[in-house]
Amino acid sequence: MKRQFVKLNKNATIPERATEHSAGYDISASETVTIQPDEIKLVHTGLAVQMEQDDVMLLIDRSSNPQKRGIVLSNSLGVIDHDYFPNEFMGMFTNITDKPVTIEAGQRIMQAVFVKYGLVDNDNANGERTGGFGSTGEVENDRQNTNADHQSV
């Protein structure tokens, strides 16, 4: 398998790197949304991503967002796992100003960087993803409670 972005709707923009030596792919909003002061809102990208099994895609805020647009990526760093495909990945943004902020469809809002990751020798993860955004929370908590006395510190 290779890495590739997949458009899920006609408003999506296939991400590109701005320069030959850029690490990040510019991710754009696929919809126009307005975020009220202190509000947290998911912004659609209209994209899914296919990756190698030992890849993770990190969603990173654009450095100009806080000063120029008054928004920040709420969770600081988004983590999109290999098994998230074919779900749409989105950005969660907070308006840090005292006025509404509008993100226009097609506007670059964050960057995606691919990273290889490793596992510990005694890894025993065997759960399966059951959905999209925020779908692993309950499964992880159940597994952590079940395996709590088997974990090393």
Rank of each mutant, 00 (worst) to 15 (best):
Phe93Gly: 01
Val139Pro: 10
Ile80Leu: 04
Leu73Ile: 06
Asp98Met: 07
Asn141Gly: 10
Met90Leu: 13
Gly78Glu: 03
Tyr117Met: 04
Gln111Arg: 12
Pro66Ala: 05
Phe89Ser: 01
Ala112Ser: 09
Ser76Ala: 15
Gly70Thr: 02
Val120Trp: 07
Thr97Lys: 10
Ala125Trp: 08
Ile96Asp: 07
Ile71His: 01
Thr102Asp: 02
Val115Ile: 09
Thr97Trp: 05
Gly78Pro: 03
Asp81Met: 08
Ser63Glu: 04
Phe133Pro: 09
Ser64Met: 03
Phe93Glu: 01
Thr97His: 04
Gln67Ser: 10
Gly132Trp: 03
Met110Glu: 05
Lys99Ile: 09
Met92Trp: 08
Asn75Ser: 06
Asn95Gln: 05
Thr97Val: 11
Gly118Ala: 11
Gly132Glu: 09
Ile103Val: 04
Gly131Phe: 04
Gly91Thr: 10
Asp123Ile: 05
Asn141Trp: 06
Pro86Gln: 05
Gly118Pro: 05
Tyr84Ile: 02
Val113Tyr: 06
Asn124Met: 08
Asn65Trp: 00
Pro66Gly: 06
Val120Ala: 12
Phe93Val: 00
Asn141Phe: 08
Asp98Tyr: 07
Ser76Glu: 11
Glu138Ala: 15
Ile109Met: 01
Glu88Gly: 02
Glu88Lys: 08
Ala112Met: 01
Lys68Gly: 03
Ser74Trp: 15
Ser64Pro: 05
Lys99Ala: 12
Phe114Gly: 03
Ser64Glu: 04
Asn122Ala: 07
Asn124Gly: 11
Gly137Ser: 15
Gly137Phe: 14
Gln67Met: 10
Arg108Val: 00
Met110Val: 03
Ser74Tyr: 15
Gly127Met: 11
Gly91Cys: 10
Ala105Lys: 05
Phe85Asn: 10
Ala112Leu: 02
Val72Ile: 14
Gly134Cys: 10
Phe89Lys: 03
Pro100Asn: 08
Ser76Tyr: 10
Ala105Arg: 01
Asn87Ala: 08
Asn65Gly: 02
Lys68Thr: 01
Ile80His: 06
Thr102Arg: 02
Asp83Ser: 13
Glu138His: 14
Val79His: 14
Asp123Ala: 12
Glu88Cys: 04
Ala105Cys: 12
Pro100Tyr: 01
Gln67Gly: 08
Arg108Trp: 00
Ser63Gly: 04
Ile71Glu: 00
Val79Glu: 05
Ser76Cys: 14
Thr130Trp: 07
